[in-house]
Design a protein around this nucleic acid. Structure first.
Lengths: 199, 199
DNA sequence: TCCACCATGTAACTGGTTACATGATTAC
DNA sequence: GTAATCATGTAACCAGTTACATGGTGGA
């Protein structure tokens, strides 16, 4: 027991590499320049993480040696890496995931349709939705019970959280509807010039 | 240069101790049982953090020795700790703070009216609001430019982020209005039975 | 020639996680 | 007496941060 668990950053890397084989530099740019910027992007995080993934056999890096090219190590997902990614994407939704702001769940979602297909993605969204519903119920009952005794800023901070989760809840509805539509009329689900990820 | 910077957890502890002198166990309970659960709560995080704060002179712990009482170390804010807290609360809002989900900003807000008063809090909310506006503009222009080429899940994930920030933006409006109201009719801004924090 | 960018590393440090340990007090 | 809770610690481990280092390539 206690085999070195893959970090969230590791899974983010796995997911991006699955979308498109990439070098460490490519991945750093994605974290630095896109909406995925909440993850590191520093070389001291990315390169060791890639080494770890490679030593676990989840990715494999090949040095590109074209003429007049800078050396760069292009990483591809191995089949073991693919199944590790799918296992992570298929994990049941814990309420702890919701409590921590649901960022990891959103990350999973953004890789999910490519790896598991639209049906699994819709199922995931439905589970996400009911987890949010349960969590919201708790927050709202807490608020209604304690609002009178709470300091104003505490009450407002809690209300901000509630609004945020309610917004996410509405979003899951919207996302499910959108997915259903795209299934019945699947014209151009992915564009050819797709560069991957949630930029 | 490079004096050991106080972590976000450290500031969370400072803020809670300012609201009410507390022991490590009290603070752990707050993190474990309230909406502040995104912070550690594990003894291996709290107690070392308290030691660090004490060694920096920001708090001071006194062992309560009442008869028939379990020994517990009650921490109080020192004046140095009070000014450190105020400095943190008064920091200008960086867009990096907004990008990382604004959790630290919400933490600052929840301690702010006690430490800096309602005027500073309203000013903070106004700054928060305009930072959100700027960030939202960037996200939305990115979306409108790239939506056609993005994979469905990536687009939806981005839209979820935009909805979240828009919700926060609306919340800042609401919070500012609420604060203004409470200033003109300041009846019972804090209840006597107040137990502090954003529970 | 020199700067900007591509591209990959590494070394020191440090805060948080997990897990274990200890003992006192209260309630049953 | 024993279980639950109060209350505080500590030790091993590890990922991420900061900062520095290295060298190739393309354009001005």
């Amino acid at each position: 027991m206690k085999l070195p668990d893959t970090t969230v950053l590791g899974y983010a890397l796995l997911g991006l590499i699955q979308l498109k084989p990439s070098s460490g530099y490519d991945l750093r740019k994605i974290f630095a320049e896109t909406a995925m910027g909440n993850y590191s992007s520093s070389p001291g995080a990315i390169y060791p993480a890639l080494e770890r993934l490679e030593s676990q056999g989840l990715i494999r890096g090949v040095v590109e040696d074209g003429v007049g090219l800078r050396r760069r190590r292009l990483y591809k997902l191995t089949s073991k890496g693919g199944s590790a990614l799918k296992r992570w994407l298929s994990r049941p939704i814990a309420q702890a995931d919701v409590m921590r702001g649901a960022q990891e769940l959103m990350l999973r979602f953004s890789f999910m349709d490519r790896a598991l297909g639209p049906d699994a993605t819709i199922a995931f969204l439905a589970g996400f939705r009911s987890a949010l519903e349960a969590y919201l119920a708790g927050l709202e009952s807490y608020l209604s019970e304690n609002a009178p005794q709470m300091p104003l800023s505490g009450r407002l901070a809690l209300e901000s959280g509630i609004r945020g989760y309610r917004g996410l809840y509405d979003w899951t509805d919207y996302a499910i509807r959108t997915y259903r539509q795209s299934q019945t009329s699947p014209r151009s689900r992915h564009a050819k010039t797709d560069r991957g990820g949630l930029r």
